[in-house]
């Protein structure tokens, strides 16, 4: 059983890894049309994430693969149940990838503006879809006795889920704006800097609403915290990170602020994961149908093999990812091979 817990934690870590790593380049995409006003600035935007966004998206692929391997029942029910939403996610993921790659390939102004829009809207779309999906997972889904669900696409758009969707957008936009503050110069930097505190404020308000709504609407969230009060350190740490990030932004120490906003994202995700535990998909029909980290998991031998794979592979991943970021550190300068 400890293996199931380990894989629950690792899965949350991987999702947090995705939200932190791909999160800032999604955020750059969300802000793209708002902060970058001319072609050069937009190229700076794109090139700030140019060498790293592809590696960041691998965290999403990994999350999918790990869900498949560790909790295959959830992988099967979640993806087939959210069929229409999943197809939209795939659509925006594809559009975003090609927008980044195609945008600067031709000098035409209309070509570039069109792809700028696609890049920005698809980034926004991914954030909304992920947030709404997450909102529904928190609320619970109509899992039947066979472990499947077929919810109406419109039923997924509850106010609570939409609130989380909007909050996710602002969270990633904030994260991206802090990243851009490290990477840009001149007028673009001035504009980005003005956005950071605004985004931080709006996100803080929205997130407070999410916390309140979660506690009021979903009793099981509070139950887990009441049983283990020390777990409150996770939401507390997230709150501390927000405050500290605010102070760092005011002192224009953006690297520290970026680390804090990353820690805040991880803190929030862990706080939610604690509320959900041990469920992965809660059934709104009958709690006996819920898919948990115990009844929906792979067998212990598979989980062990996977753990060995992760322990061998992930240290290397973190090491060379760090190396790549180090090589591309500093503010963006455009060159002949840039986007």
């Amino acid at each position: 059983m400890w293996l199931n817990n380990v894989w629950y934690v690792l899965f949350v870590v991987i999702v947090a890894g995705y939200l932190i790593m791909d999160g800032f380049d999604l955020g750059v995409g969300i802000l793209h049309m708002l902060v970058a006003k001319n072609d050069t600035e937009r190229r700076v935007d794109l090139n700030s994430i140019g060498p790293v966004w592809d590696g960041n998206e691998v965290w999403l692929i990994l999350a999918g693969g790990v869900l498949f391997a560790a909790f295959p029942l959830v992988y099967a029910s979640l993806f087939s149940g959210f069929y229409g939403a999943m197809m939209l996610v795939l659509l925006v993921l594809i559009l975003r990838t090609v927008a980044i790659e195609f945008r600067s390939k031709r000098p035409s102004h209309r070509w570039r503006t069109a792809w700028d829009l696609v890049f920005s809207l698809s980034s926004l779309g991914i954030a909304v879809l992920l947030g709404v999906a997450f909102g529904n997972i928190m609320t619970g889904v109509p899992i039947n006795q066979q472990g499947y669900m077929s919810p109406d696409l419109l039923a997924l758009l509850s106010p609570y889920a939409l609130l989380i969707g909007v909050t996710t957008v602002f969270m990633l936009a904030l994260h991206g704006s802090i990243y851009l503050s490290m990477k840009t110069e001149g007028d673009l930097l001035d504009r980005v800097k003005r956005w950071v505190p605004r985004l931080l404020f709006i996100f803080f308000v929205l997130n407070t609403l999410v916390v309140a709504a979660s506690l009021l609407l979903h009793e099981q969230v509070a139950v887990n915290y009441q049983e283990n009060p020390w777990l409150v350190i996770f939401p507390a740490a997230a709150l501390a990170c927000v405050v500290a990030a605010w102070l760092m932004v005011r002192r224009e120490r953006y690297f520290t602020a970026f680390i804090l906003s990353a820690a805040m994202i991880a803190g929030l995700l862990f706080s939610a994961a604690i509320g959900l535990y041990p469920n992965l998909l809660m059934s709104t029909i009958d709690s006996a149908n819920s898919l948990t980290i115990f009844n929906a998991a792979s067998a212990p031998n598979t989980l062990t093999v996977m753990l060995i794979i992760a322990l061998i592979g992930m240290p290397f991943v973190l090491l060379y990812t760090g190396g790549v970021y180090y090589i591309f550190r500093g503010r963006v300068q455009l060159g002949p091979e840039s986007y």
């Binding site: 691998v58 692929i61 990994l62 999918g64 693969g65 790990v66 498949f68 391997a69 560790a70 295959p72 992988y75 792979s298 598979t302 093999v305 996977m306 794979i309 592979g313």
Partner: peptide, 8 residues
């Protein structure tokens, strides 16, 4: 699933 995760 394990093989796909390992690929990642």
């Amino acid at each position: 699933g394990s093989l796909l995760a390992a690929e990642g």
